[in-house]
Amino acid sequence: MERDKLRVRFVVKGVNTEFVNALRRAMLAEVPTMAIEDVVFFENSSILHDEIIAHRLALIPLKTDLDSYLLPEECGCGSELGCNRCRVILTLSVEAGDERRTVYSGDLSPDDPEVKPVYDNIPIVVLAPGQSLKLEAYARLGKGKDHAKWQPVSVCTHKYYPSVEVYSERCDLCGKCVEICPKRVLAVEEDSLKIVNLLNCTLCEDCVRACPKNPPAIRVSPVPEAFIFNIESTGSLPVDRIVEEAAKILEKKLSEFSQKLEELG
């Protein structure tokens, strides 16, 4: 496992393709996050139309508090714009004086300080002198399958765990495979061909084709039932929470399924 604040790369062993793919799909489309859904404009004399500004606002990732908010369909309030259990109000009021002024995501002030834009420096619109923008935005929880603005991940991929074998008795260290590898997996060190960056291998087999020997002195193959996951969060949720939530969502689906199955008899 390699990780930093927004990214994680980890290896899963002993599971099949369907399992990792279901996890990937759940992270992309089923883990809820906060995003702006409705915007009420009080004043907009900027060059952009209301709907374009609303769209730009919606795509701003917001820090999400999954434990204190409900999905609109799970909340019983029935209100069109939601109640304080299922939405956060962000207000924005900017007036350009005598100078040109750019409105940034940091100008949004939420009524819940926990649900604020992940980055303060996302430009929304440039106001010319004298123009102003006043609005109220309603952020709600939603799922990536309804709109990409609710996706908690910007990158979520898995690939086979690679295995690279070098047959040293056939290899004459010509270095052609080292040169052609797009991911710089191989290197000639001292008097042998070394694998320096195994996890970066994409199994493209360029090295096998570049090898002048017949049969080739190198072989790449996927390791059965082993995968490398690569996930990058948009910042709305911590990356470990996304993985955990995805697994929980799948578990919930399974419980619901077996319960419905019992009912069918």
Binding site: T17, E18, F19, A22, R25, A26, A29, L250, K253, F257
Partner: peptide, 10 residues
Amino acid sequence: HTFCQLLQGA
């Protein structure tokens, strides 16, 4: 597909 392929695989 998320749920169906998971079930099918198992």
